[in-house]
Design a protein around this nucleic acid. Sequence first.
DNA 1: TTGAAATGTGTACAACTTACACTCTGATGA
DNA 2: TCATCAGAGTGTAAGTTGTACACATTTCAA
Lengths: 244, 244
Amino acid sequence: MDTIINNISVDCVIFGFHNNTLNVLLTERTLNDRNNGELLFRDYSLQGHHVQVGEDIYDAAVRVLKDKAGLTDIYLKQFYTFGETNRLKSVRDQLWIKFNYPSVSDHVITVCYYSLVDSSKTRPDKEHGNTSWFPINGLPELAFDHERILLLALHYLREEIKREPIAFELLPEKFTLTQLQSLYEVILNTKLDKRNFRKKITQAKYIIPLDEKKKGTAHKPAKIFIFSRDVYEKTKKEKLDLQF
Amino acid sequence: MDTIINNISVDCVIFGFHNNTLNVLLTERTLNDRNNGELLFRDYSLQGHHVQVGEDIYDAAVRVLKDKAGLTDIYLKQFYTFGETNRLKSVRDQLWIKFNYPSVSDHVITVCYYSLVDSSKTRPDKEHGNTSWFPINGLPELAFDHERILLLALHYLREEIKREPIAFELLPEKFTLTQLQSLYEVILNTKLDKRNFRKKITQAKYIIPLDEKKKGTAHKPAKIFIFSRDVYEKTKKEKLDLQF
DNA sequence: TTGAAATGTGTACAACTTACACTCTGATGA
DNA sequence: TCATCAGAGTGTAAGTTGTACACATTTCAA
């Protein structure tokens, strides 16, 4: 039997892009009264779990994605570790922990990752029935310090998407430029100029047009593009640009 | 008595700028043979320690800076957490740990910070006699996985100094533009054009010239500048600049 | 007073960013 | 089959920013 390390956990903030919004995958957490079964509270948490004995923390994050969301082979980035002594000390969290994981330490450090998934590949399955997507702008009440974790993840995502080609992790392999542009607009919360955006794309040789068009649209079909990490690695240039 | 959490530590990569190089503060680690006292090995480690029971991890980092290097009130940035199961498993490290900290877990997670100090304020004192500065380009052999940690710290420092006004943390309060420029040159490992560099400075209203000149130079004395975080916060503009 | 050493300054050209509006294409249904 | 709809796709001019480049100035010390 795998045993857990009782003071170290990982939490994953799983981002997906659909319905033209940025969404996060959350799991319902409820606590019922021990005596009468009455619902004491319902809120939502990130996907997380304790690291197991003998397990690397990165592997723990991979395991959490697999077990809690059925996701494999996706982008995972460690962004911060939370280690305040009071992070699980609210009355509600204490109740829940005592009921569900009585053996856990009262000072748990959590190493946090954010991950990016192509939501077209992720269908809600039976196994993870109490897990669902919530739009960034319409979050429910969150468990523990998960709101803080989520907001910081969003901050790092916004910074990273400006500098690294990670947007593609959130899109299907084949995408249109309109899709790509609205992804940037949604994440960065700005409006971008279509022509200027496309001018930049043309310069990036690793965003490659196919001889293929989007089918089944009631209007002019869009050209389809793919991202090549290979070409990216070979053509990327370091930009030195001091932001005084 | 303070007790330590035996599987969670913090490590600090302390950067300083002097002699026109970027330096790191390291502490000598030695192990002598139990029987004949003969030196088994000598290498160097970052400043680190286990987190104590009831202590926030950030506070642990502050404590480490104080206790191990006599530093207070300096810039501290968490950049990564290392949690591989084999990070302390080399023969040498195991020997050292068994001798010095036999009660420590064999899977220690370490939360890493880098810190920036104005080295003009840090004089090597008696208490920390086995601690000294090493230039980035002339590092000695390092303990544990500290070389890896140090290199990653350097990576994050290089990224952050391009976007945030942290260079000033490495300089005295009053500095000249030549000092500032060579700091950037050393950290980013490039040559910058003096006139263009100064043109940028002029635009940044938070780098403020004083009516004061450097004294005691055998040549034309340089104007003295200070950095104002206050003005920075008020005048900074978000730069949206997708690096395709 | 002269030399050494580092400070401080301007301009022209190239590259990049920004603002902006209309035509094209294919699907649909009248 | 033709008109309409909805989104795709395209170029240019003006402004801003980045880059390359060389010499006069100031102080100290000999």
